[in-house]
Amino acid sequence: MIIEQSLSMIFPLLLAPLMLGLINRTKAFFAGRVGQPLLQVYFDLFKLLKKGAVYSRTTSWIFQGGPMIGLAAFIASLLMVPFGGVPALISFAGDFILLAYLLALARFFVVLAALDTGSSFEGMGASREVTFSTFAEPVFFIAMFALARLSNGASLSEFLASQPRLWAPNIPLFFLISIAVFVVLLAENARIPVDDPNTHLELTMIHEVMVLDHSGPDLAFILYGSALKLWIFGAILMGVLIPIKVEPTILGQVTALAGMAVLSIAIGLVESIMARLKLGRIPPLLIGAAGCALFALLLVLRGHP
């Protein structure tokens, strides 16, 4: 068991950047381009790690500490995320709360690092980041409460492991929860329709503009961290969506890996066919997702379907 558990920690550490590659390839395919190599993100990471760094004179130690703390928080969160039906390395009652707050800690430091540069662009991105995550967090929590009630458990591993027994009569329910989690995934990972990961300098984006001034290993940490964050939400979504529990468990993990690939393509698809929403339309989107999650919770509470 410990081997599989470690595997579900090793997979993201190795494969998370591949998701970004897959998304990029999908988008390129829909745009009629060949696109960058699948492994481009890895190349970028290695290149950045080998470089020196440039720091603004305005910045303080917060700016240099932000990426580090962010990455550490993402890796620590991964410890609590089950993958493919295999329980996570660490699981305890309410671990999803710690996960959400670790992600919040990472956000806090990325935002502070952005404010540390004194650039108004980055201030703008920081301001939007905190605004939208304020709405995304309750959605995630309500969805988790629904799962808690459904699975009669209290930790992520219990929520996402006891699926097969419950799947059959609850298709609409999982569908609703998946919608909510998917919207949170898009919002938290700076994907279209909430944010555009491709633009760097327009006034429209959020996450990318906050990391404008980072360079070298710091930027590598941020890039790698955002891949891991995508994996965290992807793994949770897979846990909700994939109904099959297979023996041996390694097969379940392979299924989940395939699921992650499909998810990456789906995200690429969403990014290809949708435009970024106007900023004012993002809170309604997240509130709509909250509505889905709450609807799911109410359905569970009724003991039905």
Partner: peptide
């Protein structure tokens, strides 16, 4: 059948 019905209503 209920699942379908509920799915429809959820939709």
């Amino acid at each position: 059948m209920t699942t379908w019905l509920d799915g429809l209503l959820i939709l």
